Simulated scan of single mutants.
Amino acid sequence: MARKMWVALGLCGFVGWGEFVHWRASRAEVGVRSGAGSEAVVVLGFRNGPGARANALNRWRVRAALRSIDRAVGTSILICSGGSGAGSVSEAALLARYAVAERGFAGPVQLEDRSRSTWQNVENLIPLIEHVDQIKFVSNPLHAQKARLYLRHQRPDLAARVVRSVDYRLGEAFPLKPLFALYGLRDLTRAKRSLAAQQL
């Protein structure tokens, strides 16, 4: 009985740690929202495979992007970002198709369909976001933090316009969060080391 109790406590602690890591990442590298007249909500694609429909993770990212749209903002543009992976259709196109055809999004949509990495995502997005008042990156929170970090290095002036999206919700997909946290923290650490090395 005692052993089961300790196992249960350990699992609860692991899940709680995953929640905390995602909560903290969702609030990193962001500013405070203001009365913006326009915003860009950028959803970053994930490797999709050869199918003609966005996979489960990409569909979740689109839903998080749609709930991140601020109805009080005058103009909100949904930007879908990601090049072609294993399939002939780009991740950006699959994300946009899901948002419009399956989720009923009727607002303006733009595609960035040339990127093969997060660094390229941010680099290629700059012409699409530099005219808006506020910017939101939507992905798994740690991946979105990585994108915000890259923007701060590529265009610090635009990074000052980045605000928090709604890609974190308490308890959402909680069994997977510890695994995403382990991978995301390792990936984020590598990104920070790479940026630090570039500055030497």
Score class of each variant (00 low, 15 high):
residue 140 N to R: 09
residue 88 S to R: 12
residue 122 V to N: 01
residue 133 D to Q: 14
residue 90 S to R: 00
residue 113 D to S: 15
residue 137 F to C: 04
residue 98 Y to H: 13
residue 82 G to A: 07
residue 122 V to A: 05
residue 92 A to S: 14
residue 136 K to D: 02
residue 126 I to L: 12
residue 147 A to I: 01
residue 94 L to V: 06
residue 97 R to N: 12
residue 120 Q to W: 01
residue 109 V to C: 06
residue 151 L to I: 07
residue 92 A to R: 03
residue 90 S to H: 02
residue 144 A to K: 06
residue 142 L to N: 13
residue 95 L to F: 06
residue 106 A to E: 12
residue 127 P to H: 14
residue 100 V to D: 08
residue 113 D to P: 05
residue 108 P to S: 10
residue 127 P to Y: 11
residue 122 V to C: 07
residue 77 I to K: 09
residue 79 I to G: 03
residue 134 Q to P: 08
residue 115 S to P: 02
residue 152 R to Q: 10
residue 82 G to E: 05
residue 96 A to L: 08
residue 129 I to N: 02
residue 111 L to P: 08
residue 117 S to G: 13
residue 81 S to M: 05
residue 132 V to T: 10
residue 80 C to F: 06
residue 128 L to W: 11
residue 78 L to V: 11
residue 104 G to S: 06
residue 95 L to W: 00
residue 131 H to Q: 14
residue 148 R to N: 03
residue 93 A to C: 06
residue 141 P to V: 04
residue 128 L to F: 15
residue 116 R to C: 08
residue 119 W to L: 15
residue 86 A to P: 03
residue 116 R to D: 08
residue 96 A to T: 05
residue 110 Q to K: 15
residue 149 L to Q: 09
residue 95 L to K: 07
residue 84 S to Y: 01
residue 79 I to E: 01
residue 126 I to S: 09
residue 108 P to E: 14
residue 104 G to D: 09
residue 112 E to S: 05
residue 117 S to A: 12
residue 136 K to C: 04
residue 79 I to F: 04
residue 117 S to K: 12
residue 100 V to H: 02
residue 147 A to L: 03
residue 125 L to G: 00
residue 140 N to K: 07
residue 92 A to I: 09
residue 149 L to K: 10
residue 147 A to V: 08
residue 131 H to G: 11
residue 88 S to C: 07
residue 147 A to T: 05
residue 108 P to F: 01
residue 82 G to D: 03
residue 97 R to L: 07
residue 140 N to S: 12
residue 137 F to R: 02
residue 100 V to E: 10
residue 133 D to E: 15
residue 122 V to P: 01
residue 144 A to H: 05
residue 118 T to S: 15
residue 127 P to Q: 12
residue 89 V to M: 13
residue 142 L to Y: 13
residue 91 E to Y: 02
residue 123 E to Q: 15
residue 147 A to W: 02
residue 83 G to V: 06
residue 101 A to L: 10
residue 83 G to T: 03
residue 81 S to D: 09
residue 139 S to N: 14
residue 129 I to E: 00
residue 97 R to A: 13
residue 131 H to K: 15
residue 77 I to T: 15
residue 147 A to G: 08
residue 119 W to Q: 14
residue 128 L to P: 09
residue 82 G to F: 01
residue 83 G to L: 00
residue 126 I to C: 11
residue 135 I to E: 02
residue 112 E to Q: 10
residue 94 L to S: 02
residue 120 Q to P: 02
residue 143 H to A: 11
residue 126 I to K: 08
residue 111 L to K: 11
residue 143 H to I: 09
residue 132 V to M: 08
residue 137 F to E: 01
residue 139 S to H: 10
residue 124 N to I: 05
residue 122 V to E: 03
residue 150 Y to S: 01
residue 101 A to V: 13
residue 107 G to D: 07
residue 150 Y to I: 13
residue 109 V to E: 03
residue 78 L to H: 05
residue 130 E to P: 05
residue 81 S to Y: 05
residue 149 L to T: 13
residue 87 G to T: 02
residue 117 S to I: 12
residue 80 C to S: 06
residue 99 A to Y: 04
residue 138 V to D: 04
residue 92 A to Y: 06
residue 146 K to P: 00
residue 138 V to A: 02
residue 151 L to W: 00
